[in-house]
Design a protein around this nucleic acid. Structure first.
Lengths: 223, 223
DNA sequence: ACAAGTCTGTTGTTTTTCCAACGGAAAAGA
DNA sequence: TCTTTTCCGTTGGAAAAACAACAGACTTGT
C-alpha cells in the first residue's frame, strides 16, 4: 500500500493530508487495489457498485452500449481522478455503463460505508477526508451542470457562444485561452469540427470575437 | 423554525430523521430562512456562495445570461429540492448563473462549514445528515451524467434511442412509460417537438419500437 | 533542413433540423 | 352533451449541420 501514498497525496480527495495520515487511513477505509490490462472490464453495465474508486495510474473509459448495440465513449478518467461517485446511493440501481481500462491501469477501491461513517477510533483526519470528498463530488457536479448548459443550446453557434462566454466570466477577462484544440472543442461540445470552425470564422467576421490558436478575445456588442 | 420541520421531513436531505432531531439540527446548523417574491433574485451571477439551500416552498429558476444578453432557463428547482450544492468548494469561484424566484418562495440556508464539520456536541444525527447529503448530491450527479449522455448524441433520432434505451434498462423491461408528454420530452432532449414527433413515427414505421401515448415498447433488432 | 504528420480554415453537397401552420383526436371544463 | 383547449402527428419550405475533401500553415522528429 505504501507505494500508492505518493500518488494519492496529489489527488483532490487526499489533499492536505500527510503521508502517515494517508497510510493509516488506507487501513481505516479498508482499501483494496487491483491491476487491469488494456481492454479489461472494471465494471459491466448491470452490476451493483458499493465502492468509491480512485484511478492510481492508467486511463479508463466510461462507455455506453445502447439497446441496438451502438457504442459511445462518455467519459475518460485520468490518473488521480475518482469514479463511481454517482452510484454510492444504496438504492441507486445498477450501473448504466461499462467501465473499461483504456490502458494498463491501477485502481484503488474504498468502502463507501466506512468513508461516510465516522470511524470509532475517531481517526483524526477523517473529517478532512469527508470535506475533500464533498468538494470533489461537488466540483464534478458543477462542471457537469456547466457542460449541460453548453450542450442544451440548439445551434453550434450558440454552443460556442455560451462556452466562450462562460470561460470569459471564469477567467474574468474578455481575453483568455482554452485548453482544447479545435477537434477537442468540437468533441467537447458534440458538434462537427469543420462546421464549428466555419462558425468560429463567421463570428470573427461579424466582429463578435477574435482568436489566434487557443487564445480568444470577445468583443462588446455594438448597439 | 418549527413550521418548516414538516416540510423538511419529506426532503431527501432530512429523510429518516424525527421531528425533534430536525429541530435540534436546525439550531446546530445555524439555519436561516428568507422569503422571496416572484421575480426577486436569490443570487446573482458573480456572487460567492457559502451556504447550501433548500427550497421549502415555491419555485426557483436557475437562469443564465450570456455575454451578449441572451437568456436561458437552465433548471427549475421545486419545493423540497436543494440547490447551490455545486458551489460548496471554497475556491469554486463565483456563481455562473442567476437564481430567481419564479413564484413566491421560501428558502432555508444552511452553513456548509457546519454541515461538514462534525459538531462539537456530537449531535447524534449529524452522521445521518452527512450520508443523506452525499446521497442527494451523488444522485443529482448521476442524473446529470445520464442527461449528458443523451444530449451528446448528434441527432434527434440518436437522442431518442439513447434515452428510451436507458429507460428500458432502468425499468428492466422493453415496455415502459415515460414521465413526459411530447413537448416536455423535446425540451428535455433539447430538440424541436415536431421534428422529434416525426422521428418517433419513423422509428415506429421501421419496426424499432411502438408507442401509445407515454407507453413505449422497444423491439429487438432483426439480423 | 527536410520529410512526415497534424491542425485549421474553406468549400460544395447531402442530410437533418427548425419553424410555422394545420387538422384530427383526446382531454378538460361548463 | 357540447364547447374549448391541449396534445400529437403531418407537411413543406427555410435554415443549419454533417460530411467529405482539400490546401496551406504549423509541428515534430530525424
Amino acid at each position: 500500500m505504501k507505494k500508492y501514498v505518493s500518488i494519492l497525496k496529489r489527488t483532490k480527495l487526499f489533499s492536505g493530508l500527510g503521508d502517515d495520515d494517508i497510510l493509516s487511513m488506507l487501513n481505516c477505509l479498508n482499501a483494496a487495489v487491483r491491476q487491469y490490462n488494456k481492454g479489461e472490464y472494471v465494471f459491466r453495465q448491470g452490476e451493483y457498485i458499493h465502492d468509491l474508486m480512485i484511478l492510481a495510474s492508467g486511463r479508463i473509459h466510461i462507455q455506453k452500449e445502447d439497446y441496438w448495440g451502438n457504442l459511445n465513449i462518455l467519459n475518460e478518467i485520468r490518473s488521480g481522478e475518482i469514479f463511481g461517485e454517482a452510484y454510492i446511493v444504496p438504492d441507486s440501481g445498477t450501473l448504466m455503463n461499462d467501465v473499461i481500462a483504456a490502458e494498463t491501469s491501477t485502481v484503488l477501491f474504498f468502502d463507501m460505508e466506512r468513508i461516510l461513517t465516522v470511524c470509532p477510533s475517531a481517526c483524526p483526519f477523517h473529517t478532512r477526508l469527508l470535506k475533500n470528498m464533498f468538494y470533489t463530488i461537488s466540483d464534478k457536479n458543477k462542471s457537469l451542470v456547466q457542460k449541460l448548459s453548453y450542450m442544451s443550446e440548439r445551434s453550434t453557434r450558440e454552443k460556442l457562444l455560451s462556452y466562450l462566454s462562460d470561460e470569459a466570466k471564469r477567467q474574468n477577462s474578455s481575453s483568455f485561452s482554452i485548453p482544447f484544440n479545435r477537434q477537442q472543442l468540437a468533441d467537447f461540445l458534440s458538434v462537427d469540427r469543420s462546421a464549428m470552425s466555419n462558425e468560429l470564422c463567421k463570428l470573427r467576421d461579424e466582429g463578435m470575437l477574435d482568436f489566434h490558436k487557443n487564445e480568444f478575445t470577445l468583443h462588446e456588442k455594438i448597439r
